[in-house]
């Protein structure tokens, strides 16, 4: 809809179209501002208020009394997070677990996406559907599957004991190992998809040119394929890392007391302790930690959108 195309129309019509254009832009902009952006401002606000035994359980930020406006800005919740080593340990545990799981997803997902992109056209569609199908079933149930596999009387232990390889069951459930496996399992399709999209779009003549010029396979991979698929690596890694940092279901079902993760701590502060201000402060700090990865992801994604 370039202006030049419209200039031939009468002015009133142009005006109407301009109005329509603005209305069309406003629709998603207003919805997302109201239900996505504004809520974050509220999280910030509540994180600065004081917990109170009330409904809702927090004190006011502004109060008009004795003809003066009182502003209560309370940094206590943030100081509280710093003072208790539990929270710092939970943040560290989340970032560490998410990082290991992302690396594992990349190491497994890259060769998978590479093989898919190299398959014949008939196979490509089938393989793509096969990789994505699990993510369309149910996240909860796929995590649940590992409870039956990893537990002390679970499938792996029964198998190993049956084969006579071990006498006492290996403790795998409620460990760091179980949480990492769960994240890799749940998020692997989201790593493969963007990698595949980038690898399949790659111009094969570049690889041929490299090989014609005498480059060896590994060299070609490092110097041509890898840089060209960088967008896929970033997008896939961020699609795994960022949600994994805030993951609640997986540490709740597969983790134990020694696998602290911030998503679970936030959930417990909110639902068990009913301390909304501390839960909000936890969310704000998590958002701050994830700001750089989110902006990084956005920059790659917005290039795709336009």
């Amino acid at each position: 809809m370039k202006p030049s195309r419209l200039s031939a129309r009468p002015a009133t019509m142009l005006k109407r179209w301009q109005l329509g254009r603005r209305a069309v832009i406003a629709l998603p902009l207003v919805w997302l501002t109201l239900f996505f952006l504004l809520p974050f401002a509220l999280v910030l606000k509540i994180s600065l208020s004081e917990a109170a035994i009330a409904i809702p359980p927090y004190g006011p930020l502004l109060e008009y009394a004795d003809q003066t406006l009182h502003v209560f800005l309370n940094l206590g919740n943030y100081l509280f997070l710093l003072s208790d080593s539990l929270y710092i340990a939970a943040y560290w545990g989340s970032v560490k677990t998410a990082f290991i799981a992302t690396a594992a997803c990349l190491l497994l997902g890259y060769p998978m996406a590479y093989a898919m992109a190299r398959a014949s056209a008939r196979w490509q569609l089938l393989l793509l559907l096969l990789v994505m199908l699990p993510s369309w079933t149910s996240f909860l149930i796929r995590v649940y599957a590992w409870m039956g596999i990893l537990s002390n009387n679970g499938l792996i232990n029964n198998l190993l004991i049956g084969l006579g390889l071990i006498d006492t069951p290996l403790r795998m459930m409620n460990t760091q190992f179980a949480v990492t496996i769960g994240i890799v399992y749940a998020y692997l399709p989201f790593m493969v998809l963007p990698l595949y999209a980038h690898l399949t779009r790659m111009d094969n003549s570049l690889l041929e040119a490299a090989s014609d010029l005498g480059s060896r396979k590994l060299n070609t991979f490092i110097k041509v394929t890898l840089p060209l698929s960088m967008g896929g690596i970033v997008a896939g890694s961020m699609l795994v890392f960022i949600p994994a940092v805030g993951e609640f279901v997986i540490p709740e079902l597969l983790g134990g007391p020694d696998t602290l993760m911030i998503g679970k701590v936030l959930w417990e502060e909110f639902f068990l302790n009913r301390d909304w201000p501390v839960a909000s402060a936890l969310a704000m700090v998590m958002l701050l930690l994830l700001l750089v990865p989110i902006v990084w992801f956005h920059r790659y994604q917005s290039r795709e959108l336009e």
């Binding site: 997302l32 996505f36 809520p39 509220l42 699609l239 949600p243 805030g246 956005h298």
Partner: peptide
């Protein structure tokens, strides 16, 4: 465009709480 891409990666606990 930020508000369209951010929900794709936003941790669910943050979206839910907010």
């Amino acid at each position: 465009s930020s508000m369209v891409t951010a929900p794709l990666v936003m941790p669910e606990v943050i979206t839910g709480l907010s």
